[in-house]
Amino acid sequence: MCLAIPMKVMEVDGFEARCEAKGVERQVNLFMMQDETLETGDFVMVHVGYAIQKVTPQEAQSAWELFDQVLEAMDR
């Protein structure tokens, strides 16, 4: 349950952001990101709908590759 998924910030509105990952959009809560400045195009790690940390695009990419792998395995 501690799994976090990287998402790209599309639009910030107060403590909320519209984020996107692989074509899926979600509202993400930014209440825990008050020490960071977030802009459109940034990547965040999202856990249960809350951003827990800002990450680099490279990290987001490698995490996504991993999830494809793991999801495939868990479907078996």
Partner: peptide, 8 residues
């Protein structure tokens, strides 16, 4: 949950 989930 653990800390990661409790924080949200």
């Amino acid at each position: 949950g653990f800390e990661t989930t409790m924080a949200p």
